[in-house]
């Protein structure tokens, strides 16, 4: 019984969810019976479902039977229907870094400076647009955000931790 190479990322995903569920169950025991009763019921239902989901990924007969029992498609049929888009880990990591940098930037310097910088850098370096095109869209976006949120809706956008520190 083994999990074919192409289904392993799905298996890792299930294992991560399983770890979260186990942590959830363990944490539940800290609470009084009334507080933990329903969360525990839910948590204990999740464990066998996740294990069956994991088993269904294997190339065994049991895996196939489980898939058929629980779903209208076998793993092979699911493989055939899978999104053909190739998502390499490096591609994903790169996007995660960009998004993480945006959130970190917002935390450090706030929305107003971070917005045009992010839009400009994305357009220029990921989209391959010219300096002029990137600048136009970044200026357009910050004007939109400022006018809509600060002027019309009168929200005070987060100024960044640096501004908090330096008054």
């Amino acid at each position: 019984m083994r999990i074919p190479e192409h289904r392993r990322p799905s298996a890792y995903y299930i294992l991560v969810i399983l770890a979260v569920v186990v942590l959830f169950i363990a944490t539940s025991y800290q609470y009084k019976i009334t507080d933990r009763m329903f969360p525990l019921m839910v948590g204990y239902v999740a464990v066998p479902l996740l294990l069956m989901d994991l088993l269904a990924l294997t190339d065994s007969k049991l895996g196939e039977k489980l898939s058929i029992f629980f779903s209208a498609k076998t793993p092979t049929e699911v493989d055939e229907d899978a999104d053909p888009t190739e998502r390499t880990i490096s591609q994903e990591l790169m996007i995660f870094v960009w998004m993480g940098a945006l959130v970190l930037g917002i935390y450090l310097i706030g929305f107003l400076p971070c917005t045009p910088v992010f839009v400009y850098c994305w357009m220029k370096f990921r989209g391959g647009y010219s300096v002029k095109e990137s600048a136009y869209l970044s200026i357009g976006t910050i004007i939109f955000v400022y006018v809509l949120f600060e002027i019309i809706l009168q929200y005070e956008l987060y100024p960044g931790i640096f501004l908090y520190w330096y008054g």
Partner: peptide
């Protein structure tokens, strides 16, 4: 590449 940065920023705001 035009859609992603603008929608992401507006969504976070």
């Amino acid at each position: 590449h035009m859609l992603i940065p603008t929608v992401t920023v507006v969504a976070l705001v």
